[in-house]
């Protein structure tokens, strides 16, 4: 997705894992996705650099779709679509 598309995206669930370190945001994502309906979008807020690569990898393995990452001052917004 383009940056603009991501900015306009309304996530079904937002989990704020800022301030936790690896693997905190990843574990938070795994826990939170359970509450997202199939077809819905999870947004993870993270301030841990490793997570930017961990979440897309995790999403691929779980056969979810990684939609993209938005760079914000001091943190990232990582978007995952629960495709199944």
């Amino acid at each position: 997705m383009t940056e603009e598309e991501l900015r306009n995206l309304k996530a079904d669930k937002v989990v704020d894992a800022r301030g936790t370190s690896c693997p905190g945001p990843l574990l938070a994502a795994k826990k939170a996705i359970a509450a997202v309906p199939v077809g819905g979008v999870l947004e993870v807020l993270s301030s841990d650099a490793g997570t930017n690569r961990d979440i897309p990898l995790w999403a691929k393995k779980m056969k979810y779709e990684h939609l993209g990452i938005l760079d914000e001052p001091g943190y990232w917004r990582v978007f995952v679509k629960k495709t199944k």
Binding site: P23, L26, K61
Partner: peptide, 8 residues
Amino acid sequence: IGGAAAQD
């Protein structure tokens, strides 16, 4: 182990 568990 946290990383592994997150990936099931």
